[in-house]
Amino acid sequence: MRIPPLYRNSNWQRLFAGMAVGGCISWIIFLFMFGVMQERNSVIMQEQTNKIRELQSDIKIWQDDYKELNEKNEEMLTIQKIKVELTNYEKYDIKDSQSIHTVQDAIQDDLRSLLAKDLATVYKNKEIIEKAIENKIVKINGKKYEFVIREIHYYTTIHIEIELRLAD
Rank of each mutant, 00 (worst) to 15 (best):
W27V: 12
I52M: 13
P5T: 11
K136N: 04
N11A: 06
M76L: 08
E90M: 10
Q80V: 03
K144N: 13
H153D: 11
Q48N: 14
Y155M: 05
V103Q: 13
T78S: 01
D168R: 10
Q56P: 01
L115P: 00
N73H: 02
R165C: 05
N70Y: 04
A120V: 07
K60I: 06
N9P: 04
Q104F: 03
E127Q: 12
P4A: 05
R2C: 05
I28L: 15
K136C: 07
I79N: 00
D110I: 03
A17K: 15
R165A: 05
A20H: 01
Q38R: 04
H159G: 04
K91P: 01
L15T: 12
E68G: 04
K126W: 01
Q48K: 15
F16D: 11
I44K: 13
N88V: 06
R8Y: 06
K143S: 07
Y154I: 08
I162Y: 09
D65T: 08
V84E: 00
S10Q: 05
N50A: 13
D118N: 15
S10M: 09
N41P: 11
D96S: 02
Y89R: 07
L111M: 14
A20I: 04
M1W: 14
M1T: 09
I28K: 06
E134S: 12
G22M: 05
A106R: 10
E127L: 14
K51S: 14
R150A: 08
F16V: 14
S97M: 12
G22K: 09
K60S: 14
D105P: 06
Q104T: 15
Y123W: 08
N70G: 07
N141C: 02
L55T: 08
E68D: 09
C24N: 08
V138S: 08
K67R: 11
L115A: 09
M33Q: 08
V43K: 10
I79R: 02
L86K: 03
W12Q: 03
I158N: 07
I79K: 04
A120P: 01
K51H: 12
D64P: 06
K139C: 03
T156S: 03
A116S: 12
